[in-house]
Amino acid sequence: MVFTHDTEISLRAVAALVNTDPEHRADGADLLATEEELEAFVDEWQYSGSRTHDAAELDAVRGLRAELRALWTAAEDEQVAGVNALLARERALPQLVRHDGWGWHLHATTSEAPLAERIAVETAMALVDVVRSGERSRLRTCAADDCEDVLVDLSRNRSRRFCEGGCGNRAAVAAYRARTAAR
């Protein structure tokens, strides 16, 4: 395990959130366009705490995507400044909690804080762990020429290059076809 369980989940969740943004998708589709899609996202990534289940909540979460992508891809000093600014803006107060079958882990907002605030702060706290452990190289962008998805490489040998959108399979097939054609 590279990071604690809650950090890994937060990193994978923020990558999934950032990758819903139509601005960086080849097909231009917004994968977080409806309240139902937000509900599925929250359920999949097990965000706890209060919810309003309305369009304002959806807009607030969607509004995080560009900021979180910028943090993900920033140079170290810019990333640190951005994380610190986000934590200050949201008045983060780290505390140990245990709930819903999870062991002890950190929350830095109250469970009553708005969903977008909780997502932003959990992301910032995960990025704190990434920077402190010297593992920024694990935050990547997909190596496929036609994909801008972000990913977190949690492999032992730091070898993951492609997102979960099938880009690795497409690259392998293209390489196979190129080798076959060259023969």
Rank of each mutant, 00 (worst) to 15 (best):
L17D: 02
V18H: 01
T20K: 03
P22R: 01
E23F: 13
R25V: 09
L31M: 11
T34N: 07
T34Q: 14
A40S: 12
A40N: 13
F41R: 11
V42C: 01
V42F: 04
D43P: 12
E44Q: 09
W45R: 02
W45V: 02
Q46A: 09
S48E: 14
G49P: 08
S50G: 12
S50Y: 15
R51A: 04
A55Q: 10
A56C: 12
D59E: 14
A60S: 09
G63I: 04
L64Y: 03
L64I: 06
A66G: 15
A66N: 13
A66E: 12
E67H: 09
L71T: 08
L71N: 05
T73K: 09
T73G: 12
A74K: 03
A75I: 07
E76P: 11
D77T: 14
E78T: 12
E78L: 14
E78M: 07
E78I: 12
V80K: 04
N84A: 05
L86C: 03
L87P: 00
L87H: 01
R91E: 13
L93P: 07
L93C: 09
P94I: 00
Q95L: 15
Q95A: 14
L96C: 13
H99T: 10
H99G: 13
D100F: 10
G101T: 06
L106P: 04
L106C: 04
L106Y: 11
T109N: 02
T110P: 02
S111V: 12
A113P: 01
P114D: 08
E117R: 05
R118V: 06
I119L: 06
A120D: 03
V121F: 01
T123M: 13
T123A: 13
A124S: 03
M125G: 06
A126G: 05
L127E: 00
V128R: 00
V128D: 01
V128F: 01
V130R: 00
V130G: 01
R132S: 06
S133I: 05
S133A: 13
L139G: 01
L139M: 04
R140Q: 07
T141K: 09
C142E: 04
